[in-house]
Design a protein around this nucleic acid. Structure first.
Length: 586
DNA sequence: GAAGGTCCTG
DNA sequence: CAGGACCTTC
């Protein structure tokens, strides 16, 4: 029996659908992306899931749970050292980048504008991190102590009103707070301090009302304690702040990370009912030894590119050939988690069901679309993301909810708030050029777009101040990404040919294929992002195109790749808004 | 001529 | 990944 004949017929439609941009995509393409219709209407997929009340409810409960857990974690977390592996990776990346920066600076000293201080900073950073943590830890302890005293002196009545109080920074302001957090590495401070100021005002009220209920001795004690506390706190805050001021950028972010305590693993995230599993008969059969393709299952708990065993074939030919089950709409369940997240956000945010996909690079979306995209509080959607993905959204939680217990006592912090905010705006985070975080984010974006326009880039790197140099550097990045991508494709296409594959449609890139692992290793080292299915589809298509070209002998033509490039350049998908968040750049 | 691509090299 | 040469497009 010829497997080809069996497997191919159903997919011809989708493949042609792939090759020629279809008309169903209604996202209005902007002028510069003429012809960039996405053949995969990802933006339409999740609505079906949203429509499913079961799924929605389940998500909601999960999210609540995750949030509570986060809060609890934040509360009992002792500021421990970050996961060594991550730290090391980050550090080495950092060093590499720094060395490169230095090199770059030598060659074009004028272009980069204000740049990082210098290499000395890495060491200092590492030394100071623990110091700051220690200080803050001590501070926290002191606060607990003092507060205990005060509470003793005062009445239990106060305790009842205290932390348990339900207000958690809701109301109109909270949107702004989260927004800050979403779009700026400093946001955690914004959130923090805004939270505290809120509580401060509450504290002030308490202050006014309290003494009336206290015996005079207790009042005196209270006053003394207050003064002591205020002094100590403002001193400590001052010193911490000073350290930070002297510190290189990134410190706060680092601090943030250490506070948030590097949530160990994604929670067992609920996949949508039936989600994440290729339902296609062939697809299931395709999997070696029942290894389910974790398509659509959030990566939180699954090592994506490390299947127990890898097939001998680079691109599991034959077996997989039939993963095109039909138009994407027919298999909504393979929708990537972040896409869900995004949809959910859009849904929650109201304006337009699919309105938040960056349907093409808007002229100035960097300023325009933020408020709605990241700004929204992600009460539960956030729980769908991995820690690393989330780093930012989780930042504020430990602070705002870590208890307000210490907050009512901090009038002086209020003073610092403005300073810190100014600081956050002044510090080079947004003007420093590109850092390893940006690179990483760019790589993730590559999963969605191979040929981003500079406008798109600007929109998705709001924390980068673009100039000609930065722009071309980033464009160069994508050029390099493509280069690697196409090289891999060609390599595996040739290998498939030499392996005797005759039908290009047999070539489908699945998550357990070697090719996928190579790509994932390159663009998603660390596996902290779930490679979207759309990328797999594009990769499969690219592979097939290379296969066709090579097997047709077109590679004798020096520019034989160009038609392929052209095809691929039309297949960019929309990038989830979530990637706009600068949390990816940290 | 600027912008953006590819190819090649290190 | 960056730099540079070279090409194409607008």
């Amino acid at each position: 029996m010829d497997p080809n004949s069996i497997l191919l017929s159903p997919q011809t439609r989708t493949c042609s659908h792939l090759a020629e941009p279809c008309m169903e995509g209604e996202r209005s393409p902007s002028p510069q992306e003429l012809g960039r219709d996405s053949p995969f209407p990802w933006n339409q997929v999740p609505s079906s899931s949203l429509a499913d009340p079961t799924w929605f409810g389940n998500e909601h409960v999960q999210a609540k749970r995750a949030r509570v857990e986060t809060i609890i974690r934040g509360m009992c977390l002792s500021p421990g050292p970050p996961v060594p592996g991550n730290a090391r990776a980050r550090a080495s990346l950092c060093c590499l980048e720094k060395a490169r920066e230095r090199k770059r600076k030598q060659s074009l000293p004028m272009q980069q504008g204000t740049l990082k201080p210098g290499p000395a900073r890495a060491g200092g950073n590492r030394k100071r991190g623990p110091w700051v943590r220690e200080q803050l830890h001590l501070l926290k302890q002191q606060l607990r102590h003092l507060q205990a005293h005060i509470l003793q002196a005062a009445e239990p009545r106060d305790a009842a009103q205290g932390p348990g109080g339900a207000d958690k920074g809701k109301g109109p302001l909270s949107v702004k707070q989260t927004n800050g957090c979403g779009s700026s590495p400093w946001a955690m401070d914004g959130g923090h301090h805004q939270g505290s100021s809120k509580d401060l005002s509450r504290a002030e009220k308490h202050r006014v009302s309290e003494p009336r209920f206290l015996p005079s001795g207790a009042q005196a004690l209270l006053e003394v304690l207050r003064k002591e506390l205020t002094g100590a706190v403002s001193q400590a805050v001052d010193s911490v702040l000073q350290k930070m001021l002297l510190d290189p950028p990134g410190h706060l972010a680092q601090l943030c990370r250490s506070f948030q305590g590097l949530v160990p693993e994604g929670k067992g995230e609920p996949s949508p009912p039936g989600g994440g599993v290729y339902k296609g008969p062939f697809a299931l059969a395709a999997l070696p030894r029942g290894v389910q393709p974790e398509a659509g299952v959030p990566l939180g708990n699954l090592p994506l590119a490390k299947p127990p065993d890898s097939p001998r074939y680079p691109i599991s030919p034959r077996v997989i050939s039939k993963s095109y089950e039909g138009p994407p709409a027919n298999r909504p369940l393979t929708m990537p988690s972040h896409v869900q997240e995004n949809q959910i956000l859009s849904h929650l945010l109201g304006p337009g069901p699919n309105g938040h996909w960056s349907g093409g690079p808007p002229q100035d979306s960097s300023s325009q679309s933020h408020p709605s995209s990241e700004s929204a509080p992600r009460p539960w959607g956030a729980s769908k993301l991995r820690p690393s993905v989330l780093s930012q959204q989780q930042c504020p939680l430990p602070f705002t909810s870590t208890r307000l217990e210490s907050l009512p006592l901090l009038p002086s912090v209020k003073m610092e708030q403005g300073g810190l905010q100014a600081l956050s705006e002044a510090l080079p985070f947004s003007s420093e050029g590109l850092n390893p975080g940006h690179l990483k984010k760019a790589k993730l974006m590559f999963f969605f777009t191979r040929y981003p326009s500079s406008n798109l880039l600007k929109a998705y790197f709001p924390d980068v101040q673009f100039n000609r140099c930065i722009t071309s550097q980033m464009i160069k990045w994508f050029s390099n990404f493509r280069e690697f991508y196409y090289i891999q494709m060609e390599k595996y296409a040739r290998q498939a040919i030499s392996d005797g594959v005759t039908n290009p449609k047999m070539l489908v890139v699945l998550r357990d294929s070697e090719l996928f692992r190579a790509l994932n290793m390159h663009y998603n080292k660390g596996n902290d992002f779930e490679v979207p299915d759309c990328f797999l589809e594009i990769a499969s298509l690219t592979l097939q195109e290379f296969f066709r070209a090579v097997s047709a002998g077109k590679d004798s033509d020096p520019s034989w790749k160009k038609p392929i490039y052209k095809i691929i350049s039309k297949l960019d998908s929309d990038i989830p808004e979530i990637l706009k968040s600068s949390s990816y750049s940290q």
